[in-house]
């Protein structure tokens, strides 16, 4: 029973991490139909901001966390301003390839100016410890991650439901032109979408780095691939779908890890992506999505 609870918490925290990343992807996609492959680089940039702060300024360790989140947010907004705005009205495929280009560009800038090898980054000691809940010893980072995910998602919901810009973002997902006819500035909506995606990526980055203890230029790649899977599972562009998809993927991974015999464990990612392919073909609207009619704003 303890083992089961421990693994459940593990699944929840991993799923939460994927959900944070997937929500960021989904929010940008829903507003401007951009598949942001460079999302993973936000994690790396946040991480390197921590590394460089330690190198040059040596601030207290807890101060690194807001630095990471802020830099991820700022980077997301910069990506939009510099790279994605010129291709905003181009077909979605162009945006996707641009995002790929940005991703390679950022990775290699990090390689050129820092190093290919991983660099150590400290996170507060208490994040690495364990705590007791009842008679159960659990890693602090997992509990924290679960709680923070819940808080972040609540915050996102409040933003989307209670603020003018949030309403505009939800409406823009279906009909951007009419939103602009209401006098809402397109740039503001898009910037906010990117900022939110960067914020969520920054939060996820803190946890990813606290687990790894180091940063490297390509560290964002695997998490963002997972976030993609989560988005596809839930139906691309659907926020609820991204959330559910992230949690489902987290649980599935932990489950497969526990159940799969070691000889085929290496093929786990192949199974996951095969599942992605099947869902795309059989149920492109995702596991929780509704079918869209031709002519709705959709691909």
């Amino acid at each position: 029973m303890d083992y089961f609870l421990q693994q459940s918490l593990n699944a929840l925290s991993v799923g939460g991490e994927y959900a944070l990343l997937a929500l960021g992807l989904a929010i940008v996609f829903s507003v401007i139909r951009l598949v942001n492959f460079a999302h993973g680089e936000l994690i790396a940039l946040g991480g390197y901001a921590m590394y460089l702060s330690v190198l040059f300024a040596a601030p207290p360790v807890y101060a690194l966390i807001p630095i990471c989140i802020f830099v991820a947010m700022l980077s997301a907004v910069c990506f939009e301003r510099v790279a994605f705005r010129p291709v905003r009205n181009a077909p979605p495929t162009t945006g996707l390839l641009t995002a790929f280009g940005v991703s390679i560009l950022v990775q290699n800038i990090l390689v050129i100016f820092v190093a290919t090898r991983p660099k150590p980054v400290p996170t507060p000691d208490w994040m690495g410890g364990t705590m007791s809940i009842g008679d159960l010893d659990v890693p602090v980072v997992q509990v924290l991650e679960t709680i923070v995910t819940v808080v972040a998602i609540t915050g996102l919901l409040l933003l989307l439901r209670k603020t003018q810009i949030g309403l505009a973002m939800r409406a823009a997902a279906k009909d951007f032109v009419t939103v602009r006819m209401m006098g809402v500035r397109a740039n503001r909506v898009i910037m906010t979408a990117f900022a939110v995606s960067g914020l969520l990526a920054g939060i996820a980055a803190v946890f990813i780095i606290s687990r790894r203890g180091a940063v490297d230029p390509f560290m964002g790649f695997i998490p963002v691939l997972k976030a993609f899977v989560a988005c596809v599972l839930g139906g691309f562009g659907s926020l609820a779908g991204a959330l559910v998809g992230g949690l489902v993927l987290g649980c599935a991974e932990v489950f497969l890890q526990v159940v799969l015999p070691s000889q085929v464990a290496g093929f786990r990612d192949a199974f996951v992506f095969l599942m992605v392919g099947l869902i795309l073909v059989m149920k492109p609207e995702g596991l929780v999505g509704k079918k869209v009619e031709l002519g709705d704003k959709d691909e």
Binding site: T98, F100, I104, N108, I109, P217
Partner: peptide, 13 residues
Amino acid sequence: FGLTGFFLGAIIV
């Protein structure tokens, strides 16, 4: 190191 990757990314973007 990384200059070639940078070059490719820059071309695409």
